[in-house]
Amino acid sequence: MSKMHVKLTVNGAAVEGLAEPRTLLIHCLRENLGVTGPHVGCETSHCGACTVDMDGRSVKSCTVFVAQAQGADVTTVEGLVNADGSLSVLQEMFREHYGLQCGFCTSGTITRAHRFLQENPIPTEEQVRFGMAGNLCRCTGYQNIVKAILAAAEMMNAQDKPSSTEGVGQQKVETAE
C-alpha cells in the first residue's frame, strides 16, 4: 500500500509525515515521532500500556491505524505535565502513593486515569476499578493505583469545583459482575 500524508497534533505540536496507512499509531508515535511515553505491551489491545488520549477519548494506540488518526489531537503521558513542566496532580499522586513500581504500565495507566477523571470527577472506588480495567499492571496489584486516582480526584475537586458531574462513569456500574 502506498504511503499517505498524515497530519496530527501530538501533545500540542502539529506533526506531519508520510506513513503506510496500516502503521499503528503506537509505532508512529514511538518510532517516527520519538514519543516514547506510551509503551508497546501486547499489541492485542489487552494490556493498555499504549493508551493515549485521542480527541478526548482514551484509546489503545495499538488499535488505531495512523490513517484513523488523521487530523486527530493526541495527548500522551508526556503531554499531561503542567505548563511549567512540573508533574500534574494526578502524576504527583501516583508518586506519592507508590502507584507504580516497574513503570512499564504507568504511562498508559496515568493517561487513562486522566481521561477517566474527566468522565467522572467524583468516582467511587468501584467506579475507578471498573473504569481502569483496561490497564494491566503486574507489579502493584492495583491497590495503590486506585488509591492514587482517588487521591487525585479529591485534590482536583478541592482545587476547582466541577460545574457538572455528569458522565458515563458517573452512572452506577451496572454490570452483572
Partner: peptide, 29 residues
C-alpha cells in the same frame, strides 16, 4: 451506546450489554 442518555431509556438492554464488552478504551473505538 453507553453514554447516550435517551438510548439508555429507550433500550436499556443495549447499555447494559455494552458495559460488559471489553474495557473503556476498547469501547471508545
Amino acid at each position: 451506546l453507553i453514554a447516550h442518555a435517551g438510548l439508555g431509556e429507550a433500550v436499556p438492554l443495549l447499555r447494559e450489554a455494552a458495559l460488559q464488552i471489553a474495557d473503556s478504551q476498547v469501547r471508545y473505538l
